[in-house]
């Protein structure tokens, strides 16, 4: 407004300009409202409730219809958590699980599948990608049952049947190699997300650009290295970020496959612990307050990681300024 006053533009009266500015703000917030309301209702409010719960001793052992019995105990839950002899193991389990699954499956294999299926006949590529989506669209319970049947002990498991037929010893895979199967089972689901994002990114590179690279003298492999990879940098970083966060919070498959076992917390991850403590305690005592403390820490780790990723990968530089100046 002052700009206008300075340049001596008298054709637009001050009051009009003011109400226009207000209108454009309202327009902008109006458009943001649907997403904003969803974030508030399904993220911010639950986080606030869980944060509050984590500061109480609410548990099924002291739960009555009178919620007033719930005691505010400050940071005691967090203190207990830090002194928990298994928390450290579970923390490193989680890092191991996320890093290995992410790097081998959710990113590398996803990239490999998209590159391969976009370099073969279109319809064949489609078929292979459709196969890779099956683990994701199959209900987790059914999917895990299939795996369990495959790796079950002799004489039930399919793999062990082959072992027997070939005269090899049989194994109880869940107790010998629990991590291999936790990672593979989750990885097979994880591939499809990156695969879809990468494939659409590769397909949306203009054909002329890809042809130009071949004419300029590159082989198909050189074209991937010098043209395709740099042009799908954004989707690549997005998948790394998004999949880190989603692996961090996923536990259904692990719960169904090993339930954190075998033995004490061998494949237990942080989010599964939160669930176990708060909702499915072995001893029958659901420690809602204590479980919430685990959940709050997970949210904090997630937020911190997201901020670090956005800084390191410079997401803001990858996004163009909007062409629309005002509404």
């Amino acid at each position: 407004m002052s700009e206008q006053a300075k340049t001596g533009d008298t054709t637009v009266p001050r009051s009009r300009g003011g109400s226009n500015a207000l209108k454009s703000y309202l327009g902008a917030y109006g458009f943001m409202a649907p997403a904003g309301i969803l974030v508030i209702v399904f993220f911010l409010i639950p986080v606030a409730i869980v944060l509050y719960l984590s500061l109480t001793n609410l548990a099924s052992s002291n739960f009555t219809s009178n919620l007033a019995i719930m005691e505010f105990i400050g940071l005691k839950n967090y203190q207990t958590l830090l002194n928990d002899q298994f928390a450290r193991k579970i923390f490193f389990n989680t890092i191991f699980y996320v890093l290995v699954t992410l790097s081998i499956f959710n990113v590398s294999l996803a990239l490999l599948v998209s590159l391969l299926t976009t370099h073969i006949d279109r319809s064949a590529g489609f078929v292979f990608r459709a196969l890779w989506i099956l683990p994701r669209i199959t209900s987790p319970v059914v999917y895990i049952l299939i795996w369990k049947r495959m790796i079950a002990e002799a004489p039930f498991g399919i793999i062990n049947q082959f072992n027997e037929a070939l005269g090899q010893p049989t194994y109880n895979y869940i107790s010998t190699n629990p991590w291999v199967f936790v990672v593979v089972v989750n990885g097979f689901i994880g591939v499809s997300f990156g695969m879809i994002i990468f494939t659409s990114a590769i397909e949306s590179i203009p054909r002329d650009l890809l042809n130009a690279s071949l004419v300029d003298g590159s082989s198909k492999l050189q074209r991937i290295r010098y043209v395709i990879m740099p042009l799908i940098r954004w989707p690549l970083l997005f998948v790394v970020t998004y999949q880190t966060l989603s692996l961090l919070t996923s536990f259904v498959e692990i719960q169904l496959l090993t339930d954190g076992g075998p033995g004490l917390y061998r494949t237990e991850v942080w989010s599964l612990t939160a669930y176990h403590r708060a909702l499915s305690n072995y001893f029958g005592n659901a420690q809602w307050g204590y479980g919430s403390a685990f959940a709050v820490l997970l949210v904090m780790i997630g937020v911190v990681l997201a901020v670090i990723y956005m800084r390191v990968f410079r997401f803001d530089e990858l996004i163009a300024e909007p062409r629309v100046e005002a509404l």
Binding site: N211, A212, L214, V215, G217, P230
Partner: peptide
């Protein structure tokens, strides 16, 4: 293969590599 034909091609869309500078674009072949 196209790379073994020693041809140069100019496209309607220019088909310049957006992630490379002008120098890198011309130097690419």
């Amino acid at each position: 293969q196209p790379k073994d034909r020693n041809i140069g091609m100019v496209f309607q869309s220019y088909a310049l590599y957006p992630h490379m500078t002008v120098f890198q674009n011309i130097a690419y072949p």
